[in-house]
């Protein structure tokens, strides 16, 4: 018990130190308040804004794009990854295409997406999906192709038809790997949706940051950044909870 408390204390220390350093830079006059607002002011502003409808609207816009893109990436990634793992013909096509597409910085495609899909939701959602797709696809593929042969044999001997093996054995057995991919994909989605909104948008958290930067409202610049960090943490811990529930039978990695 006290060990966990100690660990938590140790973990809070650098965050506290970080905030203390931030505050002292201002208190001792190294950084002018116009460039670096005091942490108190930033958190106060965040607290004030959190329940205003404008701010909630921005968060909703960001979350909508994030979830839409992430959901598309999960569905496509799992389906294509599984298909490539079980079918050599699909694998022969998917593997080289992924090899070419995966290392391309997807954000460079954003101008093209703007031109093809317009400046509204569609281009941002597509960019999020394109970026989150590959880690999910790849970890699904590796997870599914490494399912222990004898699990499949055991199920077949127990009378499972070949067509059901995919859903009864391969998918559940690959679940740890799939969820790892989803976790990476989720963080990427957070990052990408914010960046896309910064580059061109009329709403969303990223747009708030750019707006504030244009008018040199430094306090308002920090608010969306802290918000996206919190959102990332919350979503990550939700996914972690889901993972703990779904993988309750699996040994710890």
């Amino acid at each position: 018990m006290s060990a966990t408390v100690n660990k938590a204390l140790l973990g809070i220390t650098p965050i506290a130190l970080f905030i203390a350093l931030w505050q002292s830079l201002i208190s001792f006059g190294y950084a002018p308040v116009t460039l670096l607002p005091p942490p108190g002011a930033v958190f106060l502003r965040l607290g004030q804004q959190l329940f205003t409808s404008d701010f909630l609207h921005e968060i909703a816009a960001t979350l909508f794009r994030l979830f839409a893109g992430f959901a598309i990436a999960v569905v496509l990634g799992v389906v294509i990854g599984l298909a490539a793992a079980i079918s050599p013909a699909i694998n022969a096509v998917v593997k080289p295409v992924v090899r070419v597409l995966a290392p391309i910085p997807k954000v460079a495609l954003y101008p093209a997406l703007l031109l093809i899909l317009g400046f509204d939701h569609a281009s941002k959602i597509t960019l999020v999906a394109a970026d989150a797709l590959f880690p999910i696809l790849l970890s699904t593929y590796y997870g599914a192709s490494m399912v222990e042969q004898k699990l499949i044999w055991s199920a077949m001997a127990a009378g499972t038809p070949r067509a059901q093996i995919l859903f009864k054995v391969v998918l559940p057995a690959a679940m740890p790997s799939i969820l790892t991919g989803c976790r990476i994909g989720l963080v990427i989605s957070c990052i990408v949706v914010f960046l896309a909104e910064m580059i061109t948008s009329t709403d969303g958290l990223g747009h708030m940051l750019v707006q504030a930067a244009r008018t040199f409202q430094t306090v308002d610049m920090f608010v969306p950044l802290i918000t996206i960090s919190m959102l990332g943490l919350i979503l990550n811990s939700l996914l972690h909870g889901l993972r703990t529930y779904l993988l309750r039978g699996f040994p710890e990695v």
């Binding site: 222990e148 044999w153 040994p251």
Partner: peptide
């Protein structure tokens, strides 16, 4: 011609389904 429930395997690796109790 293939596996069937008339022949039940028991493997050295146990091969239990980890997602089932």
């Amino acid at each position: 011609t293939g596996p069937g429930p008339d022949r039940g395997p028991v493997f050295q690796e146990f091969a239990l389904f980890p997602w089932k109790n």
